[in-house]
Write a protein that binds this DNA or RNA. Structure first.
Lengths: 207, 207, 207, 207
DNA sequence: GATGAATGAGGGTTCATTCAT
DNA sequence: TATGAATGAACCCTCATTCAT
């Protein structure tokens, strides 16, 4: 897979500076969210942490929610990338192998910055947009649905999408709980997740 | 078991009035939470909805959080009752039968007022007290742990408690998602939950 | 001086009960004030501490301020009694001897319940009535003024009253500060007070 | 002494605006305190009087108490300046001359805005921080203590500090009372204060 | 574009006082 | 008379968002 950014025309200095500011703000937002949780997450704190004025923050993000959304979108993008990478490896065969890939991607993603993802989970629910709201979350879901399709022959597209969404939610729940309890034993967690998902999928109504 | 309340002396008028007010406030709180979600849940709204002054609210609940906690406690109590009833039925044998009982209790509980329980989930996370904070949540967990113990011989108490907590979380997640999607098909949901839990528990490390 | 209460007709039981309730409330108020200071002094706390309903409290005291006023009045009454006793001893001669009597009475009064008197000082100032508001404070002041008159021949009545009021204020200030610092060395404090007052009075304009 | 402000670089517009707002708020706070006393002193009133929003007030003062503290700090600073100026005049010799200087500084300070200083006294007591809480009050006290040291040879540092604190309290009390009574006759008041302090200091235990 | 001062609605909580029982 | 539930005005403080410079 070629690096698409290589073909994007060089930004003008102003544009590059903009881009850097956006990144700075997002990273600051992430850190504030990690450190203070949803309750302590406010635009002033983010701007201060980013070393930028609130005004600038609002230049790039129309609202606080937009900031959260972008944070969450990026997380999903990382998940998407991991998932695509995992699926590109070779032809996967068994359900378990496929699930293992999904699960690994999810664990990798959520444990990279566990506090952040947990906090985002909570904020997303609060604000009322689930991760499928932005395209990326939807693409993740679709990818999983496609993956599941191979092992659930005859399932309707809606069913597959629901199964994919549920699987992801379940995985996130379990990972969140594990993260809460302390350092992760990735392998054991992976096994539990795979087992759980196999059980879940096995109980879906067959057409 | 005779009805003990029959022997409790009639409350004095004043006390009865208090009790009624408390109930009114709690019901109002539940409705506000259902209608407006965690974001729109504020003490003024609750008091207004209850047709009561804020002062009265604070006479019975020392803080907004205490109100949420009580709401959640009551929910957990309902769950506990359902669970105890289910377990008292007769001698349960298989893991699946036991899980089915747990799952039924959970579904019954969470679908009685689905919006409310969902909102409570979110508030609990936000405020940082999980349902185990009050005794009831803990008792639910303990009960489930005990139930699982019979089917996971040799598991350490800590493991059992974690398994119980995870099971409950997973169940709630799935039920929440189902509720979001619309009216529930209780039987199909139940099957999926049981399957999922069997899968999860089967993947736990054996001693 | 005859005991006037001896001639007050025996109270009916109801009246006695009333009187007791009043005393209970006042003592509770004093204790709350001592324990929580002006900031924590509120009618509900007083009623609770007295084991009485707020309603009852308002039966006997028309307002919170009335309660404080009565507390302060009683303190002043104690001071008055001490002062009268001191003056009745015999014919006082020198200024210093007279001042010593005043000062002793003041110390005795304010150190009997130091926290209480300090808190009252603060509340009185806040509420805006000085202790001369009720008759007793005035009588204390008048008594002191009369005492000073003997040593400030030719001073106008107004001057005497001002001197008396100032003397009392100064004494209270110094005693308060001493109380703040910890246990009192009554004798040393007394000396300082007397010295201070002599200095003060000596500097008054002579007619 | 040249005017140092002449050399301070012009503030940027934004900073100047801030500074002005701060001053506006402080002046409004002073006026509210003078007009309404401690009881009527609330942040909304201050903001309204300053023609500013509450938000602005809280941008510059983290709490209501911080506002009071700053007001009191500024008063103490004025007192400190007056005191230092008075002491720098020349080599003071007698106790009386030194006291006269202290007393003049105190009178000048407290009669500049008498209502304000009175109200501050009360609030400080209520809130529980005496003026020594901020450095300035302490420096005033230290300065007085040093001044007294020359006339109380052999006194321990603690004794000197107590004497300084007491002297200041006594002075403030007497000035407050004088202010209450109406327009001040500065010279007569000064004499009374000096006399009182000499009396007080003369009665301190000699080592 | 950038800044950060300013805004003000909103929300949690307290407490003196009233009044139906 | 006693009770204590109920009231609601007041108050402190926060924070998303705007806008003059």
């Amino acid at each position: 897979m070629t690096d698409q950014t290589a073909f994007i025309p060089r930004k003008s200095p102003a544009q590059r500076r903009s881009r850097e500011t956006v990144e700075t703000i997002l990273e600051a937002a992430a850190r504030v969210l990690e450190a203070a949780g949803p309750a302590g997450f406010n635009t002033n704190a983010v701007a201060a942490r980013a070393g930028v004025s609130v005004g600038s923050l609002y230049q790039y993000f129309p609202s606080k929610n937009a900031l959260v959304a972008e944070l969450s979108r990026r997380g999903a993008e990382a998940m998407l990338a991991a998932l695509e990478a995992a699926m590109a490896e070779d032809g996967a065969r068994t359900l378990e192998q496929d699930l293992r890939r999904i699960v690994r991607a999810a664990i990798g993603w959520q444990t990279a910055r566990p506090q952040l993802e947990r906090a985002l989970d909570q904020m997303e629910e609060r604000v009322g947009f689930d991760s499928a709201a932005h395209g990326v979350g939807l693409r993740v879901q679709t990818l999983i649905a496609r993956l599941l399709a191979a092992h659930l022959p005859g399932a309707a597209p809606d069913q597959l999408n629901e199964a994919a969404a549920d699987s992801l939610s379940l995985a996130r729940t379990l990972i969140d709980r594990a993260v809460e309890r302390g350092p992760i034993e990735a392998r054991a967690l992976e096994d539990r997740l795979v087992g759980m998902l196999i059980g879940y999928l096995g109980a879906l109504p067959r057409p």
